[in-house]
Design a protein around this nucleic acid. Structure first.
Lengths: 351, 351
DNA sequence: CTGAAAGCGCTTACAG
DNA sequence: CTGAAAGCGCTTACAG
């Protein structure tokens, strides 16, 4: 059934040339005459010859493939990152193979083992939420396979990282609320075992301190996953307080949206009574009413930057660089949900 | 820098066994004694030996890899499908390599050529919006590489397809509006060069006919991409009519959401004055107020089914089957946006 | 139950 | 500018 493919040798026989010459002609080797190249390339096209890139990879010890490990593909943030990776990789002759850890350490370890056999040229990873140490990735260092981590990155070992400045972003978001006139600012915090959410909480606190506002722990509500349902619960907790906050910085957009909806049902005016700022610039932030002020976390660019750094490391093999960390500039997108006084639409870039 | 990997031959020498035996022991071949297997496997683990699966694929002419071509990874529907594919593939020993056509025929053709060299065992494809014929995929048939198409599938040649019944789903959605008491039902139609959107329009018309309601072409609004902005324009067009429709079946959720928002701003009551039904069960359909009645299009299951069918075809090589088409059951999820008379939450499965 | 040998389809250092 | 030859790291049909 599987009709046998034409090999490079077949093509060589057909053209009365050696396999060496065919290989070089197809690879556009400078030593081959233009006449021969044209002849070979035309005939290859005619016969529908396709190089067996597995054989080629095997011989060259280079697969032109990048392994990606993400918690889940269907989380919008990760799908944007993957899209950015694929785009950059494609334009540079690489292809991407994707694995989902499902946020399980066990599965992440399994995938790491599989990737060691797949001979990928490099790996891009967002750690699972369960991952506390990166021993299972150390083998890649030994094998000389470069790795780049994004978003949830390791703290226990030197590694290439693409991150945003969560502290600064949170600081900027909180300061924006302060500038809008808020005095009692709450924070819906992400899981405090994860560094990025710790940093967002710290940024929030720092902004309050800077502006001499008290840090009121009753206004800081912890969550596990920052999902919509947890947001609803947080909104209810705020409503049970003797006094509502007048601004809330949420560690992501889902909780921000749920707060808006619960408050609106309770006839609490947004932004007049409570101004809201989210984090991530999810599509819903442009649709929810009022539109949500939020932080653009550069998901697509994070993917591009990850792929770019990884491919550079694959191709340069610069022995003097131990690791690189690239911090992307975020952007505060100001929309209606924080406009205590009506503002014209504007954007504040984090410096 | 790249420390040389341990090969199977090294392991053989270390254990004083032949490479044949090592290969069989690692592959759990029945002819090898349990004692030898244990010895080999333990020593492999000790030395951190990892089989070079490129060499193995090359030799076996089997890569255990599936190529995926989607328009874009960051469209939620596709990210769910990919997630379903990855999940099923992973559990069955395959990995997935993803390419984005960006809805460009030119790029889709490029990717098809690349995949011919990559020696993938099979391919899953959602056609680009520009694709009118599938000549660029015919080569895979010749090479004996199975293909499965989902969602946007070819009509010009026999192929394995995973689809939903768009006609029936649209019929069910429209009939639901009729049962809710609507008499003047509009439809926001998708690009009519795409079969699935043609089918949704036909299903809508068929339901009206069945219930002896007139088909009023002024209520059928065409769009190109069914995006939010087009939805806004459609809403405005409806408002310019001498009389509003009392129900609208939208070919996707984005346009449904935009209609809801524009109408609400104009103080048009939903669902009392106009009932709305969407299509796809996007996350936003649960968040928008009122919650959106919609069709669950089984994106994740579509991915699972695609992978399952593909892997079956890869492994069975049944020469008697020309092609298979699997139609997934959709589900009408009834929420507030269509509740002319208040209903308790329920779900109607398409039979 | 184990081994020797051939070979998968390329690429590349070497030679001319 | 082109070719002969070796070999990448496995697997498997064949032999014992």
């Amino acid at each position: 059934m599987k009709s046998s493919r034409i090999t490079l040798k077949d093509l060589a026989k057909d053209l009365n040339l050696s396999p060496s010459t065919i290989s070089r002609a197809l690879g556009n080797h400078p030593a081959i005459s233009d006449f021969t190249k044209k002849r070979v390339q035309n005939r290859a096209e005619e016969l529908g010859f396709r190089l067996n890139s597995i054989a080629s990879s095997f011989r060259k010890k280079k697969t032109d493939s990048i392994g990606i490990i993400v918690p889940r593909i269907d989380i919008h943030f990760h799908s944007l990152v993957i899209s950015g990776i694929e785009e950059y990789a494609y334009n540079n002759g690489y292809h991407v193979t994707i694995f989902q850890s499902k946020d399980l350490l066990k599965r992440e370890k399994e995938i790491a083992k599989i990737l060691q056999t797949k001979m990928v040229d490099g790996i891009i990873i967002c750690l699972s939420i369960e991952t506390k140490n990166c021993d299972h990735f150390k083998k890649f260092d030994k094998l000389g396979v470069p790795m780049v981590f994004y978003d949830r990155v390791p703290t226990d070992f030197e590694a290439n990282k693409i991150v945003i400045n969560d502290f600064e972003s949170a600081y900027t978001a909180t300061e924006h609320l302060i500038n809008a006139g808020c005095k009692r600012i709450g924070h819906i915090a992400g899981n405090q075992t994860t560094d990025i959410f710790k940093a967002r909480l710290e940024g929030y606190k720092a902004a309050l301190k800077k502006h001499k506002l008290p840090i009121d722990s009753s206004l800081i509500l912890p969550t596990n996953n920052l999902n919509y349902e947890e947001g609803v619960k947080c909104a209810q907790k705020y409503m049970e307080l003797p006094e509502l906050p007048d601004g809330i910085f949420c560690a992501n957009d889902y909780t921000a949206v749920s707060i808006i909806q619960v408050f609106r049902k309770a006839e609490i005016k947004i932004p007049r009574q409570v101004a809201i700022v989210g984090f991530s610039n999810y599509p819903i932030s442009k649709i929810i009413e009022p539109n949500l002020t939020t932080i653009n976390d550069r998901a697509f660019q994070m993917g591009e930057a990850s792929a770019k750094l990884l491919i550079r490391q694959i191709e340069e093999k610069n022995d003097f660089i131990e690791s690189e960390t690239i911090t992307l500039k975020t952007e505060l997108i100001i929309r209606e949900s924080s406009a205590k006084v009506p503002v014209t639409k504007k954007v504040v870039s984090q410096k």
